[in-house]
Design a protein around this nucleic acid. Structure first.
Lengths: 117, 117
DNA sequence: TGATTATATGAATATGTGTTCATATATTTG
DNA sequence: CAAATATATGAACACATATTCATATAATCA
């Protein structure tokens, strides 16, 4: 390695150091995980509904989304276990609601972005 | 089915008709597809970088993200083929950039939501 | 032209996800 | 208590996705 290539490498290294993420990696991991959870038509629908109706029973969500009960239940269970939703029993019904209210903002945002696709 | 159950069913039906999606289903499908594409730490990083640096070579992105070249190339190719990115060769380098500028807004939005997690 | 650098591609594999189906549980009501 | 309703659960399967590795291509330069 001669002097020139040494200097060039050095410059290159400095240059590339300028290009950095604006967000720590762990945050990207977290964000990606949340997006992944929501990145499904039925689950987006759930977020949409619960963002507007505060709380709904499984049946109501099933009706509104047209999703079969068992499948919907799986979706809801996943979303609950990963902290997106919470549920409370009331008699024979179980009401679901958003644990992270911000999620509906996310939907609105995507809505927005998506217009310009 | 007696009169009462008929009336009840009817009321129930009317009630449940009030609960509807605010967005047509196809739109949810589209939105979910976009989110799915971005819902990965490396790909979020790519969106972040290209939102701020306008255009970058594969190597620059690889350095900044710490992602191995072949794997990154796969990610970039996917994102390009699905319309999120575009690429242009310039000599030995290939520059990638956001085709959907709105994507970086999406990232900001998630950032926001994510704070309150 | 041959070496080097930047990038892409394809096969193989591991792992994850969505869906279905059958069945279980909990609550209410007659 | 038996029946009906609302919801959950678990196994099985199909399918998609992420990753790795080896190799290909394309451009540049000596």
């Amino acid at each position: 390695m001669n002097m020139c290539s040494y200097i060039c490498a050095s410059i290159k290294e400095e240059m590339s150091q300028l290009i950095t993420l604006s967000v720590p990696k762990e945050k990207l991991v977290k964000a990606a995980a949340i997006m992944k959870l929501v990145a499904h038509p039925t689950r987006l629908a759930v977020v949409d509904l619960l963002g507007r109706y505060d709380r709904l029973t499984v049946n109501e969500i099933a009706d509104a989304t047209g999703c079969e009960q068992s499948l919907l239940s799986h979706h809801l269970t996943n979303m609950r276990l990963s902290g997106l939703l919470k549920s409370e029993r009331e008699g024979v019904n179980i009401f679901y609601s958003l644990k992270l209210k911000e999620l509906s903002k996310l939907l609105a945002c995507i809505e927005n972005c998506e217009c310009n696709l």
